Simulated assay, not measured.
Amino acid sequence: MRRKVAKYLLVSVLLFFMIISTGLVYFFYANDAPITKGQISYGVTYKGDLSLDIYHPTKLVHEKSPVVLFVHGGAWIAGRKESMNTNRVNGAVNQLRDHGYTIISIEYTLARNGKSPFPTCIADGFDAIQWISDRADSLNLDLDYFGIMGESAGAHIAMMNVFSNPSDFGLTHEKTALDYVVDIYGPNDLYKLYRSESLDSLMAMIKELPKPINQHLNLANKVFGFDPEEDLEKTKTVADLYSPVTYLKKNLPPVLIIHGNKDQIVPLEQSTSLKLLLDSLEVENEMHILEHTNHAFIGADDSQKSDVQDWIFNFIENQRIELRKDASIIN
């Protein structure tokens, strides 16, 4: 009897994983995911137990390949490097690879066991950039055309890697110059994000839940590593230290900003205020606001989703063209 039960359970588990695997394969192919195309180097270790995936060009267009670093979202507590394939940026990534680009998607440190992901997740980004720079020749990468793109929490890390310096977070290696940053609904002022109405409403709902669930879902506590309500002065100090707006200055590389005007996770004001600051510093930037669109492009129609792919591809490719023009003028 026990053998029959065990056999039944084993068959059920195998069928479950077969269904999940089949569903994922169908999803990836149906959404034209980059993971279904060309050569990909999976799970390459770049630091400790952290790895990255290298999506090589699908067409050899350049003698050396321009490179884009992708940083996934997930509120600094979740997410995977494979999320680049979940259809929010698929079209842009496919276009870039078809035009000879290499796309590298990284893991980074997430909040765990009451420990904040900061500043380690930011340092991870800097270390990944350094790893890429050190191996540019063996990977046939052109560091003269090197940019970074992220969504949500990943966009925050991407901006920190462009706006701040490795030495700000105890790293000794020199900063690799990046040519642009693509900010997809990323938070750039953490204190304002923490004090926003949307987060206040979410936290109020979480507080009403039973304590074990409350503690598990308390996003603010996980991100800060302490209860931010207990000492707002400390909270603001920590938030400012890890906010991209703190490090804004003149002569930053161009910034592309994409945000939905109905975002209930990262308020649109995070991006509109960033644009105003960039404008005041005369930093080249481009902003696109998606109407009736929530976080992660929820609510966007097919036309809007298509526009997002074109905005990203055109921005990145135009930066390469402009940089090439500047180089030819100098020479």
Results as ranks from 00 to 15, higher is better:
286 E>I: 01
237 T>I: 06
258 I>D: 03
263 D>A: 11
237 T>K: 10
242 Y>T: 03
288 H>K: 14
272 T>C: 05
261 N>L: 09
255 V>I: 09
288 H>R: 10
226 F>H: 07
222 K>F: 02
275 K>F: 04
287 M>G: 10
220 A>T: 15
223 V>E: 11
283 V>Y: 06
226 F>P: 07
268 L>W: 10
263 D>I: 11
251 N>M: 01
231 D>E: 08
268 L>E: 10
274 L>V: 05
250 K>N: 10
278 L>G: 09
279 D>T: 13
228 P>S: 02
279 D>C: 05
280 S>I: 07
246 T>I: 02
240 D>T: 10
236 K>N: 09
240 D>N: 15
273 S>K: 12
253 P>G: 03
278 L>T: 06
224 F>Y: 15
265 I>H: 10
249 K>H: 10
284 E>Q: 14
285 N>S: 14
278 L>F: 07
233 E>T: 10
278 L>Y: 09
269 E>M: 13
239 A>H: 09
259 H>S: 06
232 L>I: 09
277 L>S: 13
236 K>E: 14
220 A>V: 15
244 P>S: 03
238 V>R: 03
246 T>H: 08
267 P>M: 12
251 N>F: 01
221 N>M: 13
266 V>Y: 04
254 P>S: 01
266 V>T: 14
242 Y>D: 01
269 E>Q: 13
278 L>S: 09
221 N>V: 12
285 N>I: 09
239 A>S: 15
238 V>E: 11
258 I>C: 04
239 A>V: 12
244 P>A: 10
255 V>R: 03
256 L>E: 05
283 V>H: 04
242 Y>G: 00
247 Y>A: 00
281 L>V: 05
256 L>S: 02
255 V>T: 13
280 S>D: 13
226 F>S: 08
275 K>M: 13
277 L>H: 12
241 L>C: 06
